[in-house]
Amino acid sequence: MSLASELLQYLLSGLTMGGIYALVALGFVIIHNVTGIINFAQGEFVMLGAMFMVTLVKAGLPAPVALLLSILLVMIIVAVIEVGAIRSAKRASPVSLVILTIGLSTAIKGIALLVWGTHPYRLEPFTKGGPINIGGATIVPQSLWIIGTTVVVLAVTFFVFEYTYWGKALRACVVNKFAARLMGINPRKMSLIAFVFSAALSALAGIVIAPITYVTYDMGLMLGLKGFVAAVLGGLSSTPGAVFGGLALGVIESMGAGLISSGYKDGISFVLLLLVLFLKPGGIFGISGSKRV
């Protein structure tokens, strides 16, 4: 393979993973914007989506039905978690909330372990067919599904935020909680919606990635963390930032793994995270955050 096609290969696989990261990052950003919480359990929503999908498909449901049902299940579970755990701890300090979501993450992972065990599951790709050749690089059809899904979901998300009542209400909550309440928007309900919506995004990410990876009870951790890094790269409060952050992270990681060493793939993301925190605390794509008094 020539260097050019090799680079193209890295780019393509980078964009594939980047799409996933972007979806997870978007979930982070939505929750963080509306509630101020950094949700360390985000990755588990991804894992749950993938696990339900695998289980339902194995149970004989047609893939589209299984997909919708999986997302729905994750949304319900997250709604229960929001009402049962997050809401009752809302007055806690940010540190306590971080610990709480870590606890949730661990508990969800633990339950998944009990239900599904430690062994990895596989999911058939959405469409059959061999790898496609693009300019010397190859790409499996599932990658196209991932990239396509990401694009569609992002478009839908932007539409929701810009044009629907709930989207506007969510944004109002971000700008000013107090004013939002005056306008009759209930921040409690908004928090629930934010959690459920971002759970749906993450579950979808888990479902589309399932065919190109092993589905295990602990897959959520790394995906969640990467989504987190992507969100920080994007400035933690900007939705387009999260998307760019995700894609950039995917590409950088894949280039780094290909050109430097695959063992250091995860290391690269976190070195990037530290660099961004040090040099551009507002995120690469974010506006530098100004202190509020």
Binding site: I102, T106, A107, I108, G110
Partner: peptide
């Protein structure tokens, strides 16, 4: 870890 998670929460 199941137990850890629950204790934390």
């Amino acid at each position: 870890i199941v137990v850890f998670g629950f204790i934390l929460v």
